[in-house]
């Protein structure tokens, strides 16, 4: 049997259908960053530990470095670039700026996309939900209190 090395995938990224030829070992993060030029998705470890590469795939937050591009075939993916597509900033982005919920900014897309997945998942959100939804994203600058403030305000908790 001849092993497949490259495959064509098609997925919906930030509302548009995108196609690319990828290696079977190419990750979704690499596909987004290198083939589609969507470098807003950051790689901090490339092994599912830091969460910077989190995107929303079919409504769920995923570490895009841990998803193979071939497994994302046919899926719908939202990246940080898609958050503000169209008319100005997304309210969550505005709150991040207002509360200074970022410093170096490298983990910021991971936090924004984890929270987006949470807010899309259900109506009623508690502070505990918020804390746990981003516990898989590492921020070394210590923006956590401000991230929680921004998210809580977005959820109408304050």
């Amino acid at each position: 049997m001849v092993l497949k090395t490259s495959v064509e995938v098609e997925l919906k990224v930030n509302g548009s259908l995108r196609k690319a030829k990828v290696n079977v070992y190419t990750t979704l993060a690499e596909l987004l960053r290198e083939k589609f030029g969507l470098t807003g998705t950051k790689l901090g470890c490339n092994r599912g530990e830091c969460g910077a590469c989190t995107v929303v795939m079919d409504g769920k937050p995923v570490y895009s470095c841990m998803v193979l591009a071939v497994d994302a075939d046919g899926s719908e993916v939202l990246t940080v670039e898609g958050l503000s597509a169209g008319e100005g900033l997304h309210p969550l982005q505005k709150l991040f700026i207002e509360h200074d919920a970022l410093q170096c900014g490298y983990c910021t897309p991971g936090f924004l996309m984890s929270l987006t997945a949470l807010f899309q998942s259900r109506e009623k959100i508690t502070l505990e939900d918020i804390k746990h939804s981003v516990a898989g994203v590492v921020c070394r600058c210590g923006a956590h209190p401000n991230i929680l403030r921004a998210a809580a305000e977005y959820a109408g908790l304050r």
Binding site: T41, T79, Q93, I97, L102, G105, L112
Partner: peptide, 11 residues
Amino acid sequence: NRRDAVEKVCG
């Protein structure tokens, strides 16, 4: 607010 915040939250 910090100057480069928009670029950072938009990726």
